[in-house]
């Protein structure tokens, strides 16, 4: 019996350990090691801090880094502000007959590839796009306006891309909110503002956190949206990584950038979890 049990145990643990060590742990260790190496004059690999020094000395690198971080936080907050009323409407306001249908409808666009969604925005907003066509036909515009390639459009695109990951956790926490709490607050004379800030948001905190973490992580690591509809002269940090890897072929520098992005995303996620006293395993459920 004892040996049988250990046989199945081995059967389960071997693929999992192989997966996690060969594809997750060792590659990230390699990433870290690579980032501390550089080629010396003879072309040999030597230990060095030059990749990180480059990052701090070259303003364009750390500015891109800060810009990416700040925009990712902004996108996360806008996504929350846009999603909360929708989640509230679906769980508490609309008649229960429609709420299932509406939440299904909500999921549909997110099954479709991100590329297709970004492409949809491109043909809507570009100079020869659909929106410009309607504005011209209706006489609101005399000549077409380029609505792509600026930061506002990029932020909108990023919010659009990651909205689902905020709405779904919000719906599930709001479903567990007892209506009578809101009724009681209302009977005691609470207005909308105080009900939202003192009942709904505190109750929804776990959902806000898990949505926020996923949205933040996805936005920070996004490449498609900033690349296709963002401004041409203002880079996203993932584009810097891509440039180092594919264009300049400086893998050590790229590794350092990758590691910095990883540190940024992990530390913000860690901070978020600490502030709300939650565990990663609860948040990802």
């Amino acid at each position: 019996m004892r040996s049988r049990r250990s046989l199945t145990f081995l059967l389960f643990i071997t693929p999992v350990v192989l997966w996690l060590f060969l594809l997750i742990v060792l590659p990230h260790v390699d990433l870290l090691l690579m980032s501390f190496h550089t080629e010396d004059d003879s072309g040999a690999m030597v230990w060095s801090l030059v990749n990180y020094l480059n990052f701090f000395q070259e303003p364009v690198y750390w500015r891109t880094f800060m810009r990416t971080a700040i925009y990712a936080i902004l996108v996360t907050m806008i996504t929350f502000a846009v999603s909360l009323p929708v989640a509230f409407y679906i769980t508490k306001v609309v008649s229960p007959r429609f709420s299932g249908f509406l939440s299904l409808l909500l999921l549909m666009p997110f099954w479709v590839s991100e590329l297709v969604r970004v492409y949809g925005w491109m043909i809507l907003l570009r100079e020869s796009g659909v929106l410009n066509h309607f504005l011209m036909v209706s006489g609101l515009l005399q000549r077409p306006v380029e609505m792509l390639y600026n930061d506002v459009t990029m932020v909108m695109g990023l919010v659009y891309t990651s909205m689902l990951f905020m709405v779904v956790p919000l719906i599930s926490v709001l479903e567990s909110l007892d209506d009578s709490l809101i009724e009681a607050a209302y009977d005691l004379g609470g207005g909308i503002f105080s009900i939202v800030t003192r009942i709904i948001i505190p109750h929804a905190m776990p959902g806000i956190m898990s949505g926020g973490i996923v949205v933040f992580m996805l936005t920070l690591g996004n490449y498609l949206t900033p690349n296709l509809i963002g401004g041409k002269n203002s880079l996203w940090f993932t584009e810097q990584i891509y440039n180092q890897f594919i264009a300049s072929f400086n893998w050590n520098q790229g590794a350092a950038f990758g590691f910095l992005l990883l540190v940024l995303s992990s530390s913000i996620i860690w901070l978020g979890l600490k502030l709300t006293r939650q565990k990663l395993s609860q948040v990802v459920q």
């Binding site: 996690l20 997750i24 742990v25 990230h28 973490i213 690591g221 590794a255 992005l261 995303s265 990663l280």
Partner: peptide
């Protein structure tokens, strides 16, 4: 510890996973 490691890919940006696997395969 292993469970935590199993969850890690969810919070690692896809770009980072891509480059680290590329580097490791190359090594």
């Amino acid at each position: 510890a292993l469970y935590f490691l199993m969850l890690a890919p969810l919070v690692v940006p896809g770009v980072i996973l891509g480059i680290s696997i590329l580097l490791f395969a190359n090594t």
